[in-house]
Amino acid sequence: MKPFTVLDAKAAPLMEQNVNTDIIIPIHRLRDFGQNELGPYAFEPWRYLPDGSDNPEFFLNKPAYKGAEIIVADENFACGSSREGAVWAVMGMGVRAVIAPSFGPIFFNNCFQNGVLPIQLDRADVLAIANELEGATRPGSNSEPKLSIDLESRTVTTPSGRKITFHVDGIRRDALLKGLNEVALTLTREGEIAAHQAMARKATPWLYPAAQ
């Protein structure tokens, strides 16, 4: 997993609520393409017009936001299915972080498994960030729609220089900063796993159905 430390990048607002993972990656694309081939199909139902050309209204197709590595989203982002392809698809577009007031719970976990940072902020802060980003794209603006995310100090810096602190659980932060492999880490606890199973086998034998 690629470590995540500081990200200075373009950010694009997608201010829709309840964006679900069926939108982020349609199931037939997940079925037909591999983990690293999903980028072109991310947000497919919204991103393209029926003739296959880019939908100019779609947030990431707007020239000002092209190449964004950060998505700023609204309430309950990536709700719905457990498909990890939703993370792989946004990663395939180059996204490394998502900021939202709340997330679908499985997507939230899946992000950490792939080195993508999901940042949960108060909705008022998210709306303010989205406003600043939009403002920065207007003619005559002297800033760019960019954010700076520092995982070590847990801050997001907006185009106007405002710093917002976010919470991220220590264990998740460490893993992201170092790019750790969770399976390898857990396997170092094999003794504890075996001890737990031995105890459970005695106390609750029905948890271990004999092969039938």
Partner: peptide, 14 residues
């Protein structure tokens, strides 16, 4: 429900 990477973790470590 868990994601695909978590599935691998479960298979390897229960």
């Amino acid at each position: 429900g868990v994601g695909a990477t978590e599935v691998v973790h479960v298979l390897a470590t229960q």
